[in-house]
Design a protein around this nucleic acid. Structure first.
Length: 448
RNA sequence: GGAGGGGUGGCCGAGCGGCUCAAGGCGGUGGUCUUGAAAACCACUGACGGGUAACCGUCCGGGGGUUCGAAUCCCUCCCCCUCCGCCA
């Protein structure tokens, strides 16, 4: 395997990244692609961005820059003149007074400029990524085409139960006690369930390692800049848990800390692709999903997820999305779980993504396919916001690389799938063979 | 939590109000020399923005202030290091 880069990574990370304001980078891009941006965004079927407003702001910005810079050039000359006069022992008070007046005007202009730039930056940061040409047209979920299936639905000779029934009956899942110590949308796992959660996580990490991913363990809280870099902020603050009294947020996915590992850095071309895997808890406020999936593990405020993240060469990122998706699928295949892969249409696409595949696992208890992984190519959208670049061999300039990520997989939902697919008529659950080594050889969960 | 010391271009490091529009070194690129390489020597070598261009502007951890003029002075925040305390 030639994809492990641990040693090189360490040496290149000695220097702390200096984060630049990303506004200017965004600006240039939109300026040059104003029409393409406006056309591309139509595919999202949401309200159209006010491109004219942006153009107006940008014109005002450039006019202000020209005026302010002209004055600054004069001021610099004047100051040099003052220095010359003083060294010659001559009086410079008149010139100093004139420069002082000019300084005030410059300050005014700079203040105006700051306001314009803030508006422009806000406009840009709230603009979603442009869907890839291969992203299908469509307004919402119901328009997502199914691309392929793997495996078959298990044939059960009895009416299947939902996972919470099974989990509670087998003494593993306890929602009531979680409600007592925290609140709704939390769960306590006991015994086999706690161990199964751990087993699934370890199994998934090992799969990823086989595929060349370097395991990382990151903080579960990040700052505002990181959240902005991957696109959660400024638009989706209400979905996040924020630490009171501090500018830290609980991560909604490992995508945030892992992608931002290289924020502000310039990577070497031969470091690409760099692939990481992280198992972290994920915290989501689930604001706006009241009444949805209120029972069971499907939609929790806290859940574990194994996340695959790739930093790719721009020319290879679309191929890398297929590869990444196949890595996520591999986990389900080894667990013997039936699933299908769908492509998200423009109207269902996430804010930062240009193309996304969802993997949906079959849940007999619910009698539906449910999302268990979401694999996306962000192209340079996140790289631009987080300022992550690479330098091609022999190239003078560095350029933005492409970032991708996908769940490999959502651990809680995988546990749901294992329970519902492995259930037997007697209420016990047969475990997939691949998991047994992680469960101390246990092959079946039974009533005590 | 307490007390100190620091954050300067890809890296190291000087500068502590105006001959510095950041010295010097390392690294990188090109050249001379050489059969080739090394060494030596010479030249070039940051980012971003504005401008057709010449050129101009901004950037010395972030933000604010003082000044005709700030890497340099003041305020504030962040991060790193050392010691003490506490703690898994």
């Amino acid at each position: 395997m030639g994809t492990r880069r641990d040693a090189r990574l360490c040496s290149s990370q000695v220097a702390r990244p200096k984060l630049k304001e990303t506004t200017m980078l965004d600006l240039k891009f939109v300026q040059k692609n104003l029409d393409a941006v406006s056309q591309g965004l139509k595919k999202r079927c949401k309200t159209e961005p006010d491109v004219a407003e942006f153009a107006r702001l940008d014109e005002a910005r450039i006019a202000l820059i020209r005026e302010a810079e002209g004055l600054k050039a004069e001021r610099n000359q004047g100051s040099a003149e003052v220095a010359k006069l003083k060294r010659a022992g001559q009086d410079a008070s008149e010139l100093m007074a004139a420069m002082s007046k000019m300084g005030e005007r410059i300050k005014e202009l700079d203040a105006e400029l700051a306001v314009i730039e803030a508006s422009e930056s806000d406009w840009l940061l709230k603009m979603p990524n442009i869907p890839h040409e291969s992203t299908p047209e469509g307004a919402g979920e119901e328009d997502n085409p199914v691309l392929r299936h793997w495996g078959v639905k298990p044939e059960l000779s009895f009416p299947p139960k939902e996972h919470w029934e099974l989990g509670q009956a087998l003494g593993g899942l306890d929602f009531e006690r979680a409600g007592k110590i925290t609140g709704s949308r939390f769960c306590v796992s006991f015994g086999w369930a706690a161990k199964l959660e751990r087993a699934l996580g370890a199994f998934m990490l090992d799969c990823a390692a086989e595929n060349g991913y370097t395991e990382v363990l990151t903080p579960f809280m990040v700052n505002k800049q990181a959240m902005t870099g991957t696109g959660q902020l400024p638009k989706f603050e209400e979905d996040l848990f924020k630490i009171e009294g501090q500018e830290y947020y609980l991560i909604p996915t490992a995508e945030v800390p892992v992608t931002n590992l290289h924020a502000g850095e310039v990577m070497e071309e031969d470091q690409l692709p760099t692939a990481y895997v992280a198992l972290t808890p994920c915290f989501r406020s689930e604001a706006g999903s009241y009444g949805k999936d209120t029972r069971g593990l499907i939609r929790q405020h806290q859940f574990h997820k194994v996340e695959l993240v790739r930093f790719s060469h721009p020319e290879k990122s679309m191929a890398d999305l297929e590869l990444l998706t196949s890595h996520a699928e591999m986990v389900l295949q080894r667990l013997g779980l039936h699933y299908r892969v769908i492509a998200l249409c423009g109207g269902d696409l996430g804010f930062s993504s240009c193309k996304t595949y969802d993997i949906e696992v079959w849940l007999p208890g619910q009698n539906k396919y449910r999302e268990i992984s979401s694999c996306s190519n962000f192209q340079d959208f996140q790289a631009r916001r987080a300022n992550i670049r690479f330098k091609a061999k022999g190239a003078k300039k560095s350029e933005f690389l492409h970032t991708l990520n996908g769940s490999g997989l959502a651990v809680g939902r995988a546990l749901v799938a294992v329970l519902e697919n492995g259930q037997q008529a007697d209420g016990s659950v047969i475990l997939p063979e691949a998991l047994r080594p992680y469960m101390g050889g246990l092959d079946r969960i039974t009533m005590k």
